[in-house]
Amino acid sequence: MGCPKKQKIESDLAKAKGLGSAHHGAEHWMAQRVTAIANIPLVIWFVYSVMAMKGASHAEFTAYMAEPYNAFAAILLIISVFYHAVLGAQVVVEDYISCKCFKMMKLIGMKLFFTALAVACIFSILKIAL
């Protein structure tokens, strides 16, 4: 207050929130990294599983997925990978699509699509495993 040379251009509330004009902080960036780290061991399990399931019959595949460790890893993989994919796709859409209306449609559509796909996958695993 008072000193014109140090006049603030943001309100006290905005300063306290510390989020700037983007209206969000580092959560997106951090979640991208956290899921990236989680993805590394999960993807190694995934590659091994796909290799092991080469030429497998339906019965062999369901027997493999019904193993508790595999079902557990698969559910973690789906959550982590699809979350990571949504965050990544969001950045790509935000960066390359300039039409705001179309951008919103893509963002919402993509999030709904991946959420539905992830739920369908988890439901499938539970159906096979339980």
Binding site: A74, I78, F123, S124
Partner: peptide, 27 residues
């Protein structure tokens, strides 16, 4: 590569979903 992997992940998702609900499509 990230975007292409997303496309690939949809195929793997279908693989899993068909295994649970449509064995014929799984084969």
């Amino acid at each position: 590569s990230g975007v292409l992997l997303m496309a690939g992940s949809v195929v793997f998702a279908l693989w899993l979903i068909t295994a649970a609900f449509r064995p014929a499509y799984f084969d």
